[in-house]
Write a protein that binds this DNA or RNA. Structure first.
Length: 570
RNA sequence: UGGGGUGUCGUCAAGCGGUAAGACACAGGAUUUUGGUUCCUGCAUCCGGAGGUUCGAAUCCUCCCGCCCCAGCCA
């Protein structure tokens, strides 16, 4: 994966970036801890769409497997039927694949292990290490104690193995109602680690499972399922996020108590990104509350949202490489993600011209009935192999409204009354007149052109400061363009009382009167371009139609002019 | 106030007793038919704080401080 990634970005890197997890693996390899094997896994719960935080985990787990010639298992942690759906497993599979994750034959579901898991639970009971508890959920909570006080033992804690076995089987057979009993590990109610105070292993839930249907009415908990799944699959390094640190003691307890193959759990800090949220619960809230159009809304930090927005998988991988892997909590600057996207697209996206807010320009001295004036344009200056194309020029054109100012300041290099600029790949034009409507709005510009400057260079060596993009009115393709901005207007939306209050009101602007150069009439869904001087845009995978394209703005170009204006230097 | 973690540039992040990598951001400048790209230059005498060990400490020891996680029959 790393090699591919480097090729994608076209850059030379000094091999895969090291991190503390790779250091651990190197050490294990040196000591032959796992007979030279490296097996990781990516274990999402199918209860939502994957987001950029998962992308970090995908890059980590699949990246390590690839670099060490090991394997990475794709495994659904589907032990809670009330939250999980098939729609989610489908989207997850698609997203992981798109990110470049290759699990080969290793596609697993924790639900496929239910029989084995049940057998392990029985074994635990036989060993006197698990018991059926009749306490209610509230009672269990009360008995658990607090952070500073030890808990107390359940009165059902010392049932005989026989009784526990019978009861557990009864649970399995559906003889008891939801919530009436649970299977608990018998560990230590006074443990300073609350997770070790007789954790629940199985609960009764008479709910159909998206894969096992009605077969089960008891479902294993994460802590019991995950470690055993890792063990059965022969995982060597079970990489998860920091919040599972406290659970590691239980992970180790289950495996050693059952005396089975024992992988090592390693935790790393999850990703946080400025101007967005990465909590599944909150993301679901945005979807269900209708604050976005769905999980694939281009403003969402979901993998599918970013894909629809136009972020290339290779750019996301480069981003994941750059942020590193460590154990300290951090908040990565969204600017780094955008940098990765621009860097990638700069090398891969064809350049075209598009006018988002059109202003009509009439070239008065341009012949009315001239033959087709086709101008040659470079498709990508960063990639000679992308070749060239021709674009038609004519007497009536559109330029960008903001490329003209009636009273321009000194540092404004664009068009103004009496000023001369270059139309990219075309001619120098000079503004001779400004036409306004009754409200004083500028509706049209009258200009003259210099036929000698065809192609964009003046034979007399005369220079112009500005170069504008343009589209011939007669040949223009009408389009809708959606401009996206950050979803939130706060660097850290989690600091808001209610994260929905911090939603950026202008995160989406729809422009319906855009003019594109002719070659854009037929674009494939998802096709990406650089609209010169504006940014990178991607044909919407849902709404773009032949002849009536719809584009999403992926990211703007760096804009030093906008920066100058903002700082008041212009 | 129990336990588990963690504190190195604005943001990420290397560093593992020999005297602070790199990236983004930011600020200058050069080149430019995208105010894009590219290219130079600058940007932590200092590593949460205070002591100590050492010829030498971000790295070892002690104490203190901040932040994160854990009391789901969620994962």
């Amino acid at each position: 994966m790393t090699d591919k990634k480097n090729a994608d970005a076209g850059e030379k890197k000094s091999g895969a970036a090291g991190n503390f997890i790779r250091n651990i693996i190197d050490e294990d390899l040196k000591n032959n801890t796992y007979r030279g094997r490296v097996v990781t896994r990516f274990p999402p719960e199918p209860n939502g769409y994957l987001h950029i935080g998962h992308a970090k985990s995908i890059c980590l787990n699949f990246g390590i497997a690839g670099d060490y010639k090991g394997e990475c298992h794709m495994r659904f942690d589907d032990t809670n039927p009330s939250k999980e759906e098939t729609e989610y497993v489908e989207s997850i599979l698609e997203d992981v694949k798109w990110m470049g994750g290759n699990w080969g034959e290793h596609l697993y579901y924790a639900s496929d292990y239910f029989d084995k898991l049940y057998a392990f639970a029985v074994e635990l009971i036989r060993k006197g290490k698990a018991y059926v508890d009749d306490l209610s959920a509230e009672e269990i909570r009360e008995y658990r104690g607090t952070l500073t006080e030890a808990g107390k033992e359940s009165p059902y804690r010392n049932r005989s193995a026989e009784e526990n076995l019978a009861l557990f089987e009864g649970m399995k057979k559906g003889e008891f109602p939801d919530g009436s009993r649970v299977l608990r590990a018998k560990i230590d109610m006074a443990s300073p680690n609350i997770i070790m105070r007789d954790p629940t292993l199985y609960r009764i839930r008479k709910t159909a499972h998206h894969r096992t249907g009605e077969k089960w009415c008891i479902y294993p908990m994460y802590d019991f399922t995950h470690c055993l799944s890792d063990s059965m699959e022969g995982v060597t390094h079970s990489i998860c996020t920091l919040e599972f640190e406290n659970n590691r003691e239980l992970y180790d307890w289950v495996l050693s108590t059952l005396n089975v193959y024992h992988p090592r759990q390693i935790e790393f800090a999850r990703l946080n990104l400025t101007y967005t949220i990465l909590s599944k619960r909150k993301l679901i809230g945005l979807v269900q509350g209708g604050y976005v159009s769905g999980w694939e809304d281009p403003r969402m930090p979901t993998i599918s949202g970013m894909r629809r927005r136009g972020y290339p998988a290779g750019a996301i991988r480069n981003f994941c490489d750059r942020i590193g892997v460590a154990r300290r909590d951090s908040m990565v600057d969204m600017a780094l993600l955008e940098f990765s996207v621009r860097e990638y697209l700069n090398r891969h996206a064809r350049r075209v011209m598009a006018v988002l807010n059109p202003l009509r320009v009439v070239i008065e001295n341009y012949p009315e009935d001239s033959p087709e004036d086709m101008l040659e344009c470079i498709n990508n200056p960063e990639d000679p192999e992308a070749g060239t194309r021709t674009v038609p020029f004519s007497k009536v054109l559109y330029i960008e409204k903001e490329d003209f100012m009636e009273n321009p300041p000194k540092k404004f290099f664009r068009l103004g009354p009496g000023r001369e600029v270059r139309l990219r790949y075309a001619y120098f034009i000079t503004c001779t007149d400004v036409i306004k409507d009754e409200k004083g709005e500028i509706t049209e510009l009258r200009c003259t052109y210099d036929p000698a400057t065809r192609g964009g260079d003046a034979p007399d060596g005369r220079k112009v400061k500005g170069t504008l993009h343009w589209v011939s009115a007669a040949h223009a393709v009408d389009a809708e363009v959606r401009l996206y901005d950050y979803l939130f207007n706060r660097e850290n939306p989690n600091e808001c009382e209610d994260y929905k209050e911090c939603l950026h009101p202008d995160s989406l602007k729809v422009l319906t009167d855009c003019k594109l150069e002719p070659c854009l009439a037929q674009v494939a869904p998802g096709e990406r371009f650089q609209f010169e001087r504006l940014g990178y845009f991607c044909a919407d995978s849902r709404d773009s139609q032949p002849g009536k394209p719809v584009f999403n703005r992926t990211v703007t170009l760096r804009d030093t002019w906008a920066k100058m204006q903002k700082k008041g230097k212009a």
